[in-house]
Design a protein around this nucleic acid. Structure first.
Length: 215
DNA sequence: GACCAGGCACATC
DNA sequence: GATGTGCATGGT
């Protein structure tokens, strides 16, 4: 695909998605810290299960950096149980919180003035934070213009011929970041709309699922 | 009962 | 660098 037409198509897809679905109001969270916790909990997990875990944390007044930082491993695991992989995710939350306290005094706001790319490499050095989780936090909690690539995004773009099915996270991210204006609002809405599309029309991993409301 | 869901780390080749 | 595997709940 030629670069000029690729750019045009990417914007056109965005407009079509926005026209049919409207604004998605992402990330569904009240505070930046809630986005960070949600980003870790949602790893390979249905969002509905994550919501239950978040509700548990809120109910136990545990959705604050200090609270999670000081919560026992077993208690934290119990609260986030519904999100699945609870032992691993407990470790990952603890690792993230340790990082937050070691480098930013436990205050998410202190991250805001650090350049996105620097934060990104810091995040990636934390055990349990991979590229998608890092970019989700950067974009949705800290307003840094990084395009988030998730399973839906990759699947949709591959099935529409933009990328190969087996390409890397960076390859897909470059497709968006090299062709679109690096605007937080655009990246936010575009990714949220792709997830919405994925949920409604390309639900299965089944490669035969090619329903395409974009055409 | 099978399949899927807003990944990641680690072992092995 | 590519490929395979464990991690776990809850909805369809």
């Amino acid at each position: 695909m030629r670069k000029a037409s690729q750019k045009k198509k990417l914007y056109s897809i965005y407009l079509k998605l926005f026209a049919s679905f409207g604004p998605q109001h992402w990330w569904p969270a009240k505070t930046p810290f809630e986005v960070m916790v949600g980003a870790i909990l949602t790893q390979n997990t249905n969002w509905a299960n994550v919501e239950k875990a978040i509700a548990q944390l809120k109910q136990h007044k545990a959705l604050a950096p200090k609270r999670i930082y000081h919560l026992s491993t077993s208690k934290l695991a119990r609260l986030i149980k519904s999100a699945g992989y609870y032992n691993i995710k407990t470790k990952r939350l603890k690792a993230f919180l340790k990082f937050l306290f070691d480098h930013y005094r436990g205050e998410p706001n202190r991250m805001s003035r650090v350049p996105g790319q620097k934060l990104r490499s810091q995040f990636l050095s934390i055990n349990g934070i991979g590229p998608e989780t890092a970019d989700s936090i950067l974009l949705y909690a800290l307003q840094k213009p990084l395009f988030v690539i998730d399973a839906y995004t990759k699947r949709i773009m591959a099935r529409h011929g933009f990328i190969a099915e087996d390409c890397s996270y960076k390859d897909v991210q470059n497709l968006f970041m090299q062709n679109l204006k690096k605007e937080v609002k655009l990246f936010n809405e575009y990714h949220a709309l792709l997830v919405r599309l994925g949920k409604e029309f390309c639900l299965k991993k089944n490669p035969k699922c090619r329903i395409c409301p974009l055409k």
